[in-house]
Each structure stands twice: as C-alpha cells, then as structure tokens.
Design a protein around this nucleic acid. Sequence first.
DNA 1: ATTGAGAGCGCG
DNA 2: AAAGCGCGCTCTCAAT
Length: 630
Amino acid sequence: MYTVVSGEGSGIGLRPVSDSGAPAGEQRVVAASALAREVAADEASHTRWAWDDTNSWYPALLADGVRVDRAHDLRLAHAVLRASVLSARTALAEAGPTAWDRLAPVPPPGGPTAAALLRPDRHPGSEPLFDLGEITAPARTDHPAGNRRSHDAGPGSTREQDERRAPDQVRGPTDRPLAPENHLDPAVELTAQLLTLKDSTDPGRLRLLLAAESAGALAAAEMHHAGLPWRGDIHDEILTEALGPRPRPGARPAKLEDLANRIRDAIDAPPTLNPDSHPDLLRAMEYAGVGARSLRKWELEKLDHPVIAPLLEYKGLYRLYTANGWNWLDTWAPDGRFRMEYVVGGVVTGRWASTGGGALQLPHNVRRAVAADPGWTFVVADAAQLEPRVLAALARDERMAAAGRSKDGASTDMYAGIVAAGAVDSREHAKVGMLGAMYGGTTGVSAQVLPRLARAFPQAIELVERAARAGERGEKVTTRLGRSSPLPGDSWAAVQGSAFDEDAGADVQSRARSQTRSWGRFTRNFVVQGTAAEWALCWIASIRRRLWALGEDSTGCPPGLAPAPFDRRPHLVFFLHDEVVVHAPAALAEAVAQEVRAAADEAGRLLFGDFPVDFPLSVAVTESYADAKD
DNA sequence: ATTGAGAGCGCG
DNA sequence: AAAGCGCGCTCTCAAT
C-alpha cells in the first residue's frame, strides 16, 4: 500500500493507492500543521509514502519528531525508470520527457544551499509541483566527465560535454515556466511507475532498486536532520595548531605567511610574489632553475631544491585553510553539528553527490573534530574491497569470490586472497591490477598483471571487458539492479562518423579513437561502481531499519543531544560510498556493530542471492571519527 | 561585478 | 608510482 502526499491548495492531500497502482480510497486533505500527526498515525499501517521529492516533505516531518519507515521518491524513481534498459519498452520510457524529467533535487531546508536560493518563506512542500522548477541547485548531467582534466581533454571537449546535456535538463529560474499540462499529479505518476515496473523485463530488481534509492533519500534527510556531531573547539584547535591563530579577514594565517616568505627566499622572488598564483610562482621557479613543469604535489616531490619543502608544506596548509578552515566551520558546523547536504543519486553511477560543505571529501586531518556526544559513541564501519567483491559476484566468478572469503580465520583481505590463490605475486600487484581492470588502466604495473588476473579469474575480467566494448559501440550498460548508463551525446556519434570519412585526417581518427576508449572506460567502471552503489544503498537501508528497531529496546537510555526522533536512538550520521558512521548510546555500541554487520550480509543476499560472496566490514567503536583506522 | 576556464587537491 | 573510474570545492585569471 502506498499513500501519495501532495500539496492541495491550502492543505495537504493524502491518497491511498494499492500496490498495483489503483486508487484505494478517497483522498483526504489535512492542514499542514496536522501532517506530522497524520503521518505518525498511519505509520502503524506500514504504508509506503509516495511523494515528489523526499526533501519536499520529510524534513518537516523529522522536525516534528516523526520518522517514516518506507517511501517512494517519484523524482528519483522516474529517472531510473526512464533510463533503464529493463524498462526500455514501456510507455513511460518511450514517451517524451515530462515535468518529472525537469525536476531538480530539492536541497535540504535551513542549510546554506537553500538559503542561497532566496526562496520566499513558505511551508516546505506545500507548493504545487511546478514551483520546484525554481530550484537552481545544479542537476547532475549525463556525462561521465571523463574529460575534465586537462591532460586528456581534447580540443572541444568542453563543448562536447555541453552538447551531451539532454535538452530537458532542469535549468535555473530564467527557464520558461512549465506549461500547466506538464504539472503532473503525483498519484498519476505513481500509477504510471507501478505499471512500468510490471511491464519491465525484471520487476523484482527494479522494485528493489527503487526501494533502495528511496530509502537512501530517507537516510540522507535523516542524516541532515541529525547532523554529524562536530566539536568546533577541537576543529579550532586543529586549525590554530597548524596555521596559527585565526587571521583577520583578508590576511594570511601566520604559518602561511611564514612559509610564503621562505618560498620567496628560496627562489629569490620579490615580496610581491603571490604563491597562490600558479603562473607567477611557476615562472619564478623556472627563473630560479627549480625544474618544475607543474605544481602538482607528486611532481614536486621528485625534485631536489630548497623551495620544495616549504612549498609542499604551504600547499598542504593552504588547502586546510581554504577548504576546511574557520570559514568552513562558521558556515557548515556553527552549532555543534555538520549538516551535510547529500544529493541522492547525484552521480550517474548512482553514488551520492553532495553540495556545499564537501561532505564527501572530509579530509582525514579534521576528522578529530568529529566527536561523539557525552555518553554516546561512534560505530564506524567500512566495506573492505567492496568493488572487487561486487565484480566477483556480478560475474558469478566463484574463484574470485573464494579469494575474498576468509578460511580458517584467515585474513578477509581480498587482495591477500588473490595472492594466496596464486594469481599474482604481491598484495600491491593484486590491488593495482584489480583497480586497473575496473578502471581501464592501460599502463604500468596494472597493465602488466592484467593477463595474470584474466587467467586466474576469466569470468570477472571478461565482464568488465564486455562492458568496455559495449560502451565503445555506444551502447548502454546496466548494473545488477537495473540502473543503466547514459548514452553518449550527439557529438560523440558525430566524431565517430567523421572518422570514417575518406578525407579524415589522422588527428580526427585519433580523437575518435581516444573518445571511444574513454567512453569504454566509463561503461567498464559503471557496472562495478554502480552495483557497488546499489549494495551500499541496500546496506544503509537495512542499517536504518535495524537501528530503529534496536532503539525500541533502549527507551531506558537517557536522552542525548541528538534531535528527536533520534534523541534516544542510535542513528546514521555519515555515509561515504562504502563507509558509515553510526552515532549511538555507548551501551548499544556492540549491538549496533552487530546489526551493521548483519546489514552487510543482508545487502549481499539482496543483490546476489545465495551466490557465495562475502562482504566483510572493518568496524571500530570509537569516540572520535579520526580514531577509526581505515 | 559576474562567469567560466584551468589547476590542483580532497574523498571513495 | 602517479596512468585508468566517479565526484566537489576553492583559488586565480581572463573574458564579458
């Protein structure tokens, strides 16, 4: 059973819809102020809440202390169903783009991103659907961004990326308003999606994917609501220790100023030289005979010159200061919680992205500021070698899966297992070899050991090779649960075509070839990264359900600093691709660790049934995120 | 003033 | 050791 939630004039409509998509009762309209109470009452019926965008509705419910168990996020589901090859021959996929294709993700309320949108103060979610078009948060586009770095960006690559953007992508507020007929009813859309599932070639997998994606949206909203416990005083301590006291606006911190002077001295540069200006610094270094052709850290490290040491130190501290300095602290964690803004499904592969705050790039050197509340603790868990294990299971490569299983209490390190299986000589070779196989590496050690891996694990290697070849032909590839890759844009085909012209120059042909291989590397990686993302979604979906159930028994716990409804409950506070942080009453830590492990097993079964693949975790119970060694 | 690029680094 | 996947952020600088 579903309950469709929608804005209806001054109130909010709640419409029961059956699992087959048929209306299952009259819509009732309730006042916005009564929504939380109504939803809480209906949770007992275990309904699945269907709404346009989780962030339009759920934050307000959480603010009222109401947690929901299941949801169906129509925007996210629509995107999956439109692209999946499993639903390619359905009405929803074959029709033209609708308003649902134009929706940009709604940012979490109350954060810097939402504030930047200058929205008039309204009750969130009480507006009709088409108003969502005002959101200016950048929608993720369909390109794999394989050409973003300069060294492999051929001429015109930027233009190509723009052309790859589908014409129906959401744009900013200057975009023309959607026509009234495009203002679609969420109940109508839900019915269409349920029919699409039924007509798809694998309803089971797609249903699971949509449920996992929506559960992810719930988890992301909950993590934003709860926030990551953040000790501003510790953060300040880290910064002051590294940089000196906080400088007045416009000034460099003392340590940076110091290092800047040492850099200038070492290369005889004038005091006016700004080390933040790459062209100026590089020119001055060239004049001093340093011999650097770029300012990349790993290239500088190879050089021997008095300027190198202070320059490397400067770069490190500069990074800390600009990306995660006092400014960041003021903006993103002013009140003891870092409220990260995840963008569920924000990456083409299905991984999450984030906007503002850099939640997915939290550097290790500030993680000490992530400290549990008094009486509480963190359970930090990460999946060991997730992607190669996913590949083994995806390919049903029994020998590779066996290399990842622990025997007789032996190591659960899959790379060690690959060595033990006699495939390669060292753990390092196993690691770079597998990474190369999954990323499409063509040089160095990675390429050297690939043939040995292919001999030992022919099924796994064949799977990624086939994905690469499909991409090179311009075809879609699909993950375990049915998320399909985008097609390359029009300009891709144009370049391919022009390479076949009689008078095609060598440069045109080589550009076409390089573009072909680049897309092949993208699709090669898509199946693995995308399926790993699905495993992770199932994992956190299971975790959040288990944690809630665990909390039922802990009502004796004294309330913590965590906001309701999590004040007495262990809850997720951080997610990073293959890693989670749970904030839990200290007394529940061991129970939480057990549930997190059970959730990983459950995720493996959901994706791969009884195929014998293990997903071992490394789990740490700790007061500080920094102490969780990974 | 604002915008877009390139460079570089953070994370998985 | 520095190529091969996916991202976001912040800086400078040139163009608008």
